[in-house]
Amino acid sequence: MCQVIFVADIRKPLPKATPETQEFWDGVKQGKFILQRCNDPKCAKVYFPPRPFCPVCASRSVSSFAGSGRGKLASYVINHRPAPGFDAPYGICIVDLDEGPRLMTSIVGVPQTPEALVLDMAVELAPTVASDEISLPTFRPVGA
């Protein structure tokens, strides 16, 4: 199987991990989408972005786990304004993960057009290497 590696332009704004998010960013580098879950069985909320407590019940007892890395394209725009580090036009997308949480991301490996970016299409994690420390949790259409 051919492994496609997506590499980001160095002028792109890069995330800087905090103690609360380091595990997530380490996970993306290993091709995993780390989610968190409340340990209280009555709550069991799965959430993102990471934080050391449950945003629903405020419990500090939470666990991390590797999510499926799969979801659906929920919404997006195609940016036409010039942007340093990006080749306009490009999509800025929201993906709803199968586990529930949603996130902003890019859909890579397909043309950035309304015809190729179809709402509700199934997508899967396809990280983009942005630096030695950071890979971004970008997605591609399932089967692409």
Binding site: P13, L14, K16, P49, S75, N79, I92, C93, L103, M104
Partner: peptide, 27 residues
């Protein structure tokens, strides 16, 4: 870059309101 927005939105090419505030409307 270590704020929530800096980590989880800025890397995808949002530059101000025109390409950020508008994202939900397709849904």
């Amino acid at each position: 870059p270590s704020t929530l927005g800096g980590q989880f939105e800025a890397p995808y090419g949002i530059f101000g309101a025109p390409n950020t505030f508008t994202i939900p409307v397709l849904r």
